[in-house]
């Protein structure tokens, strides 16, 4: 009896899992719900670049980077940020 009860108990989660798993198959063909992902990636990239600029400034202030390298690297990073902002605005 106990075994039958246990099979019954395991059957319930199994049946519910199957219903949960196959549910999307009954939906009409899904549009790509991840279209905004590009946008999110760009935003995350922008944040990363801002952080890198801050860290670069910190390195410069501490004296870990000379003036020439600092200016060059800062310009490069700012260019990258500008390009991402432009992409974000265009979307």
């Amino acid at each position: 009896m106990e075994i039958l009860r246990d099979y019954g108990l395991i059957f319930i989660p199994f049946a519910l899992s199957i219903l949960y798993v196959i549910e999307p198959l009954f939906m009409s063909k899904l549009a790509n719900s991840y279209e905004s992902e590009d946008q999110k990636s760009l935003k995350r990239k922008k944040i990363m670049l801002y952080r890198q600029i801050k860290e670069l400034e910190m390195e410069y202030d501490i004296g870990n980077i000379n003036n020439k390298d600092f200016t060059k690297m800062r310009i490069e990073l700012k260019k990258e940020v500008s390009a991402i902002i432009a992409q974000l605005k265009s979307k």
Partner: peptide, 22 residues
């Protein structure tokens, strides 16, 4: 690239974990 299959795959993977928890 049928999104429904991706959802099914995701849910199946959650099911694997569920039965292991059990």
């Amino acid at each position: 690239q049928d999104q429904r299959l991706f959802l099914v795959g995701q849910r199946l993977a959650l099911g694997v974990s569920f039965f292991i928890f059990l």
